[in-house]
């Protein structure tokens, strides 16, 4: 691989993988919680929550990046508090992970929500008649049965996080080695004379990574479904 890709290209690819990995892992518990709540409960403000979750899908990414910068920048209401605690997110790879997580969250929640909705609510009632409290029903019945959707949602979110560009470059800029992810690197190579070739290589890689993630999520979801349903 080192013959084919230059060090700076490898750096961008590895950074993208790191950012996407952490974005997916850290947002997964929230994705499961929000997906479950949206699938199973009626409450005032449900549409507001649903709208907020989906907002990054509809807003121009640059707007999401701008909002993140205003909130999490060192002058922002959240960023200044974090800075007191010694955590700086703006212009660092953790900020890139945050931006990627927020942009990927709608995809993750949508897949998880649909799979919770597909779980037969009568099985949950049955578990309660057998003495399960709500937490036990969730851990033993709802979550295992929704696992195929959780897997799909995570892989889609991972693929989306690898490709995130607009919000990331707005929020954390395009710093080599820190926030220059794969898409940012493609953008940079396009701006410099003679960078076309590098851009092409990264484009091909991006296509391969995204396709693999999509195929893998389909295959894994099917596998998990088979195991869960015991066919």
């Amino acid at each position: 691989m080192s013959d084919w890709l230059s060090p700076s290209e490898i750096e961008a690819v590895l950074l993208s993988l790191k950012v996407a990995f952490w974005a997916t892992i850290v947002s997964l518990p929230f994705g499961i919680a929000v997906g479950f709540v949206l699938a199973r409960y009626e409450f005032p403000g449900k549409q507001l929550l649903n709208g907020l979750v989906h907002l990054p899908l509809i807003l121009p990414p640059v707007v999401t990046g701008f909002i993140l910068l205003k909130l999490f920048g060192t002058q922002g209401p959240i960023g200044s508090v974090l800075q007191e605690l010694g955590i700086v997110i703006a212009f660092s790879w953790t900020g890139a992970a945050l931006a990627a997580a927020i942009m990927a969250f709608p995809l993750m929640v949508r897949a998880i929500r649909l799979s919770f909705e597909a779980v037969d609510a009568r099985l949950e009632e049955t578990a309660r008649s057998l003495g399960a409290n709500r937490a036990q029903v969730f851990c033993m019945i709802s979550l295992p049965l929704a696992l195929p959707g959780v897997v799909t949602g995570s892989i889609l979110a991972f693929a989306k996080a690898i490709g995130e560009f607009g919000a990331t470059i707005t929020f954390v800029s395009n710093i080599p080695g820190e926030t220059r992810t794969l898409p940012s690197a493609v953008y940079s190579f396009m701006q410099i004379p003679g960078g076309e070739e590098s851009a092409y290589r990264l484009v091909i890689l991006a296509v391969i990574v995204s396709m693999t993630a999509l195929l893998l999520s389909e295959w894994l979801a099917k596998r998990v479904k088979t195991v869960v349903e015991g066919q």
Partner: peptide, 20 residues
């Protein structure tokens, strides 16, 4: 009392076994 506190065994028309 909540369903889980009633100690009532419920046998349904469709057995409703947990498939996983």
């Amino acid at each position: 009392l909540k369903p889980e506190q009633r100690h009532i065994g419920y046998i349904f028309q469709d057995a409703r076994l947990f498939p996983h």
